[in-house]
Write a protein that binds this DNA or RNA. Structure first.
Lengths: 252, 252
DNA sequence: CGGAGGTTTGAAAGTGATCAATCAAGGTGG
DNA sequence: CCACCTTGATTGATCACTTTCAAACCTCCG
């Protein structure tokens, strides 16, 4: 990840209240202050709470999910974490949550303690600004997910969620490789989309017929994002180009 | 709103990475820098974009909604704004959005320009910290709404959304008055919950029979929040006491 | 080779959407 | 004050989508 290049045109820049320079300037110290040695976790395991309590963590490599376990067995996967994503930011304010972090592949994680984050942010407003930007980005993503969940059909939900993962994963990578393997089980996708396991299966079957995805044993392979877009005509436009109505100021 | 009292026990405080003092310290300058003269808008009107472009705005009094108009006529009300709420924070980072702000009652609004916010935040990390806290709060709220939308039945959606409004509106007011008039039409509630207008009507009829609400002409009156809680057994616990698994550090 | 985890398929039941009227409330102009 | 009109609420019938339950099947792994 490091200090990645800006990807803004002059035009884009002027649209922001906060300049991209400021944001990059804010991220760097944070990244620099992280423990250099990533910690590694095995696939399909939980990252123990002690490992990330009171820390802001960054996924360096691998896939994971953030799950909210409900009393009534109604689990919900709140987000899929992929390289470059942070977790543990929320607890900075709200104290320990009920979230679980579960790996889906071999995952390596770097972290920085809250105390450290706070003193950095207190000293350097750009750091606070960058955090603000990061959190804001999440919000915009939620806005879209909310309309998707409120109004979307099952096909749209699955297509758009996959599309989002595809786009996020591909960002900053060689754009040539369209195929992306998403290491989530259909149960995961069900928990993520709020659909029943069985209906996810049927929905994926449709997307498969249309040539959009390839259903594997513990994963889904996205073959042709274009098909996914066509399968979610009303919803896709919200997501495809930009997560949040924004061209993000820098690559992930 | 002003500089309201803290409402934290010592125990609460220690749960936060960020202390409540820091947060209050961050909010004050922002509030102080707002134009003192609120601007007033008539009921059932749009607040013109020019009025809030490049500003962070605070609702001083009255109810409003933030609506995202979709091309296909599928409107979605993203949030209901009530006194103490901010809007325009998102555009600080993402540039102009497609949001509309519509009043539902006579509404008065104070604001502060982005440039001002940014220079305050740059000078005083506590300000940036407060903004971060505010945005974080929104996120936690979204987490709950997302599970609600993903998993909840129509009854749960309506009950919990009303409950949330009730709780937010009652906060910082005399706790005696349980009845709250919510000046939203059933069409609004439909757009907010993602349900059809007709089904909202039927659902409200149920809540009415149970003695939870009173259906008025252009509004819904919450009579007994307890009934709403009982009507949404699985979902209510997420929301009732606290929006975000947190007791907010200060009153609204 | 057996078992656990993961996926698929079918049939039945339910929930909420849609379509189509109808009704009530409030506002307006005469 | 009344006729009229607009906005908002209700009700019924029908239909589509999604869940649920049940059973089978497949794949990986020990």
């Amino acid at each position: 990840m490091g200090t990645s290049d800006l990807s803004l045109t002059q035009n884009d820049k002027s649209r922001f209240g906060v300049t991209a320079e400021r944001l990059v300037a804010g991220k760097a110290p944070l990244v620099a202050a992280m423990q250099p040695e990533p910690r590694v976790f095995l696939p399909k395991t939980q990252i123990p709470r002690e490992e990330w309590e009171n820390k802001v963590c960054e996924i360096v490599s691998g896939w994971a999910v953030r799950r909210l376990a409900h009393s009534d067995g109604h689990d919900q996967i709140m987000s899929v974490l992929l390289p470059g994503d942070l977790f543990g930011v929320n607890e900075l304010f709200s104290g320990p949550s009920l979230d679980l972090i579960e790996t889906r592949e071999m995952v390596s994680v770097r972290s920085i303690g809250y105390a450290n984050v706070l003193s950095l942010a207190a000293r350097d407003a750009d750091v606070a600004m960058w955090l603000l930007y990061y959190v804001h980005q999440e919000i915009s993503r939620y806005d879209n997910r909310l309309t998707l969940f409120a109004r979307g059909s099952a096909l749209e939900k699955v297509a758009v969620l996959l599309l989002d993962l595809h786009r996020r994963f591909s960002r900053g990578r060689s754009p040539g490789e369209k195929r992306v393997r998403i290491p989530l089980t259909q149960q995961d996708i069900a928990d993520y989309s709020g659909l029943s396991l069985e209906y996810v299966s049927r929905t994926l079957a449709i997307l498969n017929e249309r040539g959009g995805v390839n259903v594997c044993y513990g994963a889904v392979e996205i073959v042709d994002p274009g098909v996914l877009v066509e399968s979610a005509p009303a919803m896709a436009d919200l997501w495809v180009d930009n997560l949040d109505g924004t061209k993000p100021p820098f690559e992930r």
